[in-house]
Design a protein around this nucleic acid. Structure first.
Lengths: 136, 136
DNA sequence: CCGTATCCTGAACGATACTG
DNA sequence: CAGTATCGTTCAGGATACGG
């Protein structure tokens, strides 16, 4: 067990089979901070069927505070994942919609939400079992 | 320890407008808190090629602290996503490996990492443009 | 209706030092 | 080698109140 451990000169760029290039870590962490964020994910997923207004989003995502909704929308807009369209009307109307880039993220994020729904019970049981084994 | 007091027993959702069932939100948020976590994601992805030892993981994931590695591994183990195997040897050897459940998460998480790598430049440009537009 | 501004709590995280 | 324990800081995020 000696030869494998010393194998570190990574000549080729990010290969799926080797360890992470140091430069990619920051990148991944940054993007994951957005994409993996619970609120961002939910907002993107909520916008999957088309544009929505601020208040509609707030009602569609129970538990989100006004502050976090605004903040999340701003971040997503800044990242170019959603668009913000304000109509000069009375009363004011603002609609948020996925961009093309945002739609590509949606395709990635939907399976994740799906996975969460499918396995949260398994996970909860595992946690209980783990805790029981440690209470001993 | 980790008391998830997120007992939102929202019996009556606001109405038909709520896209996400109120009970799903907590679920999704909990699971996403693990699955979407930057370190968890990286650890799971790093384990894709097979079992690894503690120190190997630490080297494979630059920037992770000993504390966070330990904590992340514990969480993942508790969730049943990875296994921990300690060999009674001198020097001690401990190996971590994906469970079947962990492997299913890997399938979900890899596209996300891939997406991050493919679009981080676009996102960075969008951010710059957004900031410029707001510099007025 | 669509936000912004402010305060405040506690969880996340890194650094460091120590054990089996 | 593979952790655990403790401390200090940062910062996410909820509550609330106010502005356009």
């Amino acid at each position: 067990m000696d030869s494998v451990a010393a194998q570190d000169d990574n000549t080729a760029p990010p290969g799926p089979c080797s360890r992470w290039p140091a430069e990619s870590i920051g990148t991944i962490r940054q993007v994951m901070a957005r994409a993996g964020d619970k609120w961002s994910t939910l907002v993107v997923a909520t916008l999957q069927d088309g544009p929505m207004r601020y208040t509609d989003l707030q009602r569609a995502i129970p538990g989100i505070s006004q502050r976090m909704l605004t903040l999340t929308l701003r971040q997503l807009q800044r990242d170019g994942l959603i668009t913000r369209t304000a109509y000069a009307e009375v009363p004011p109307r603002v609609e948020y919609a996925l961009t093309t880039l945002g739609a590509t993220l949606l395709d990635i994020v939907l399976p994740l939400i799906d996975w969460a729904g499918n396995h949260h019970q398994d996970i909860h049981q595992n946690q209980t079992a783990f805790d029981a084994a440690h209470a001993d």
